[in-house]
């Protein structure tokens, strides 16, 4: 397996969706190829940073408004039916 092939299978490897037989070859290559190893490692770190860093909390004021709006809509809708 060459570095070229690694790039092609990078996603599947990082996502652990790689074919087990190919996975062994992939890992054998990583053992011997420091650049590929570093690329895999830094890709994982990149994904982890975003996963942990992009956290959004719902604003409380918005939440209150949302519930109020939905309650009104609900009443409107059910009034129309009767």
């Amino acid at each position: 397996m060459k570095c070229e092939d690694m790039l092609r299978m990078l996603n599947d490897y990082v996502d652990q969706e790689i074919d087990p037989a190919v996975c062994d070859q992939f890992e054998a290559h990583l053992e011997d190829c420091n650049p590929c190893q570093v690329v895999v490692d830094t890709i994982r770190k990149t994904i982890k940073l975003y996963k942990e860093g992009e956290v959004y909390e719902i604003p409380i004021a918005f939440r209150d408004r949302l519930h109020q709006t939905l309650r009104e809509r609900w009443l409107q809708k059910n009034d129309n039916k009767t």
Binding site: E54, I58, F62, H67, L70
Partner: peptide, 22 residues
């Protein structure tokens, strides 16, 4: 039953807000 609907909103609003922000 609005209370039941509101319960579902409570359950999903945080996730959907983060999703929309993304």
């Amino acid at each position: 039953d609005f209370e039941a609907f509101e319960y579902l909103v409570n359950r999903h609003e945080k996730r959907l807000y983060a999703f929309a922000m993304h």
